[in-house]
Design a protein around this nucleic acid. Structure first.
Lengths: 100, 100
DNA sequence: CGAACACTTTAGTATTAACTAAAGTATTGT
DNA sequence: ACAATACTTTAGTTAATACTAAAGTGTTCG
């Protein structure tokens, strides 16, 4: 599956972001998302792994995932910038809240 | 529609690339693609236009489209780099051909 | 006007894929 | 061994969308 197609899916971008700066267990990711079943999360993780965009490490009954940022190639910067922009958006909203 | 979703579709990336360096009429784009109906091309152009990724200029019975590269934001570089890489790939293939 | 042209839109079909629920696998702890 | 935990996989449903064929819109030209 093309990397662009993989990251075009919002849920997968959420997941990718959660494992961007460090590994997380699948269950941890599931809890962080909240409004989706464990199965669905697992399926997305599989897609990400098969596309080579995340690494998996098994440890006992846990599976730890982390983004393979380099594998994103040119998309890496694009995602980082999009997320940075979103943060600015949220910061702007927070300021608006404060001001009201 | 999210820009990422729009450009995730291969056919739309083809179209976007065709109008990247200058405007082209819809029919011209259709002929350049070849293996798809005019209707389908028109639909993709609509999606691209609605996402704000292309501009349209009407002239008589022609409609000229061109990429709004700036509107791609962080994706612009990503696409350009991907296309550049593809060219390298093709160049590499050509070299392999020559060598055989 | 009427025909040809350039393109869009609609109706209908087929594929893809995200999701849930439930069953399955593997590991740990008692 | 048994139960609980952590996760994956499967089966089945639903929604989205890329496509074709055909009808529709608007413009130019004889």
């Amino acid at each position: 599956m093309h990397a662009l197609t993989v990251v075009a899916e919002p849920r997968r971008r959420e997941i990718l972001r959660l494992v961007w700066d460090g590994e997380r267990a699948a269950g941890d990711i599931h809890r962080a998302l909240g409004d989706v079943t464990f199965g669905a999360v697992s399926q997305h993780l599989r897609v990400l792994a098969e596309a080579g965009l995340v690494d998996v490490r098994r440890d006992g009954r846990h599976r730890f995932y982390r983004a393979k940022r380099a594998a994103l190639g040119p998309l890496r910067r694009a995602l980082e910038q999009m997320w940075a922009a979103k943060l600015d958006e949220l910061a702007a909203l927070a300021e608006a809240e404060d001001a009201s």
